[in-house]
């Protein structure tokens, strides 16, 4: 069966002052039609870069070193920019964190949504009708009058709905959402996450949700991929991974998150910090410096991503009980 998105061995390098550093290392995962998958990790893990690679919007200094990004069977890495333009907004859309900077302050929001339609053909009247339709779908009330309002007249939550409308107007098969609710208030965040779930059901749009917040991922996703320092370190069903994490990083991360049960005692802290891009030693497990269970083996080679019972983990000593 062909997967909607099949990333294999993706390696992305970033050039800084003449040196090429690996920001992503042999990243591989699959997404099927209608799935919601979460990509989780902290700063420097490469989750945003992964998203940008898929849609072909890598920054100047970055380039794909190796690997394939197969969308409906075709390898996007080979595609020209012109071909990618035809894909973006139509088959794959992306929504970013800050709705404020994603919208043109000088154009009415309805027009901007319609423009997303027009990019891929169609007449102006078709575009307007489509825009109104999708505005209703994303829960914006009074689409007719809202059509002509400017971004600054809308609240944060409404702006994000507009951005989602722009992303979905052409019914893409895949929606990439990079921290879509991080800049929003908690109650609005809940609304937007519910909206994403609902749109996923009604339009069968697959969603790759990127977040640093494991709670958000638990709310929305069926599967989760955990990244650290450019590597995928764990993958599995959301409930499973959170209940019984296999990789030490996932486990230690969950330990350090404050929950009501931990009141009164100090939180577990992961020692050290994520190594900067130019300070990551090659040929060792990326997490070995901070791992509570590191052993000499961990400094000899990079562990491979192995699969056990539908779950993937990159650790020599995975499995075994909770800490």
């Amino acid at each position: 069966m062909e997967h909607l998105l099949d990333v294999e061995g993706l390696t992305v390098e970033i050039r800084i002052r003449g040196h090429a550093y690996r920001a992503l290392d042999s990243v591989g995962f699959r997404l099927d039609r209608g799935e919601i998958v979460g990509l989780v990790g902290e700063s420097g893990c490469g989750k945003s870069l992964t998203a940008l690679s898929v849609i072909g919007l890598l920054p100047e200094a970055a380039r794909v070193g190796a690997g394939e990004i197969r969308f409906r069977g075709a390898d996007l890495v080979e595609w020209t920019e012109a071909r990618m333009c035809g894909l973006r907004g139509k088959d794959i859309s992306i929504v970013f964190q800050e709705p404020m900077t994603a919208l043109n302050p000088l154009m009415p929001v309805g027009r901007q949504i319609a423009e997303a339609f027009l990019q891929h053909g169609g007449s102006k009247s078709e575009a307007r009708a489509a825009a109104l339709r999708v505005m209703k779908q994303v829960g914006l009330s009074r689409p007719d009058s809202l059509y002509w309002e400017f971004p600054h007249q809308l609240s944060g939550g409404m702006k994000q709905r507009v951005v989602i409308a722009m992303a979905l107007i052409n019914r893409p098969a895949l929606l990439i959402a990079d921290e879509p609710t991080t800049a929003l208030d908690v109650t609005i965040q809940y609304q937007i996450l519910e909206l994403i779930k609902q749109l996923n059901r009604s339009l069968s749009t697959a969603v790759l949700l990127i977040s640093h917040d494991l709670g958000v991922v638990r709310e929305v996703c069926s599967r989760v991929i955990v990244m650290y320092a450019g590597f995928i370190v764990e993958e599995g069903g959301v409930g499973e991974v959170l209940r019984r994490p296999l990789h030490p990083y996932t486990r230690q991360l969950l330990e350090s998150i404050p929950t009501p049960q931990k009141r009164g005692r100090p939180l577990y802290t992961i020692p050290g910090v994520v190594a900067a891009l130019d300070q990551r030693p090659a040929g060792v497990c990326p997490f070995c410096d901070r791992c509570a269970r590191a052993r000499p083996r961990c400094r000899e080679a990079v562990p491979r991503l192995t699969e056990q019972n539908g779950r993937k983990v990159r650790c020599f000593f995975a499995g075994g009980g909770a800490e």
């Binding site: 609240s155 939550g157 409404m158 208030d185 908690v186 109650t187 609005i188 965040q189 809940y190 609304q191 996450l193 519910e194 917040d213 494991l214 709670g215 958000v216 638990r218 709310e219 959170l242 969950l254 998150i257 929950t259 009501p260 049960q261």
Partner: peptide
């Protein structure tokens, strides 16, 4: 009820309408 949490929650979900 709107707070996403890694722990399982027994709270009833209340979806607020509208904006602040």
């Amino acid at each position: 009820s709107a707070v996403p949490s890694v722990a399982e929650s027994a709270r009833k979900r209340i979806l607020l309408s509208g904006e602040v």
